[in-house]
């Protein structure tokens, strides 16, 4: 299971990476915005994408739309982990095809629960 974690703050990437490691995922790579993430996704055979929304360069929402529009990537499971907490935004992310949505601040249990649910549905 190869996972890409996208967040503009290195501390948040580190927190997510640590939590994922606790859940038994060790093959994790990082990117700091959509512009860096998209080429990695296209070349890297990732199984799962965890992304923030609000980032400089390409935002998480734009990344989500780009992934869903890409023939080779459109089935990639995507979990959004973000401080964006407006109802309209959550609805928009759902409509754009996100597989899970976690609002910051979050707990390890919530992250675990959402990831498990995503893989239950995917499998």
């Amino acid at each position: 299971m190869k996972i890409l974690v996208v967040d503009d703050f290195s501390t948040m990437r580190r927190i997510v990476r640590n939590l994922l490691r606790d859940l038994g995922f060790n093959n994790i790579e990082e990117a700091d915005d959509g512009n860096t993430a998209l080429p990695m996704l296209r070349n890297g055979k990732f199984d799962f994408l965890v992304t923030d929304w609000n980032m400089p360069g390409m935002s998480g929402m734009e990344l989500l739309q780009a992934v869903r529009a890409d023939e080779n990537l459109k089935h990639l499971p995507i979990l959004m982990v973000t401080a964006e907490a407006k109802r309209d935004q959550i609805v928009a992310a759902a409509q754009a095809g996100v597989n899970g949505y976690v609002v910051k601040p979050f707990t390890a249990a919530v992250l675990k629960d959402k990831i498990e649910k995503i893989f239950e549905r995917v499998e």
């Binding site: 739309q65 964006e84 907490a85 309209d88 759902a94 979050f106």
Partner: peptide, 30 residues
């Protein structure tokens, strides 16, 4: 009123109608 793809940053006041107050409300909405 359209949703900006740029994002708006953290919501400070979660008592507002259009803002969820936590993960439970996100789950309910979804």
């Amino acid at each position: 009123d359209a949703v900006s793809s740029r994002g708006e940053g953290p919501q400070i006041d979660d008592s507002q109608q259009d803002v969820v107050s936590g993960q439970d409300e996100v789950d309910d909405l979804l």
